[in-house]
């Protein structure tokens, strides 16, 4: 937080408005659709399972919602003897 924001205090009401606008923009798209995250997770896992064996509990999925763009981070831990030998971990972000 900079000195400028400290000197220019604003009510918490405008923070509430901005947070609501952001979250509702996302929720309106998601509601009425099957759970996007679960669908994506299943499809991504199916693609990977074609090539390597993946343990379900070694998969981490993170979602960050931003103003113009959201990122979905899928973190999959491959077993040591997996086909892709040089890397034990593969990281991929889908916008």
């Amino acid at each position: 937080m900079s000195v400028l924001t400290f000197l220019k205090p604003r009510g918490s009401g405008s923070v509430a408005r901005e947070r609501l606008q952001l979250i509702l923009a996302h929720e309106r798209v998601e509601n009425g659709r099957p759970d996007l995250i679960i669908t994506l997770r299943e499809e991504i896992l199916n693609v990977i399972a074609k090539h390597v064996t993946v343990e379900r509990d070694k998969v981490q999925i993170k979602l960050e919602r931003g103003e113009g763009v959201s990122t979905l981070g899928v973190d999959i831990e491959f077993p040591v003897d997996a086909v892709l030998k040089p890397k034990a971990k593969a990281k991929r972000a889908i916008a």
Partner: peptide, 16 residues
């Protein structure tokens, strides 16, 4: 509270 800016304004709620 609305005047102090500590509450969502009527226009904010209507816009959302």
């Amino acid at each position: 509270r609305a005047d102090r800016g500590d509450m969502l304004k009527v226009d904010d709620v209507l816009e959302i």
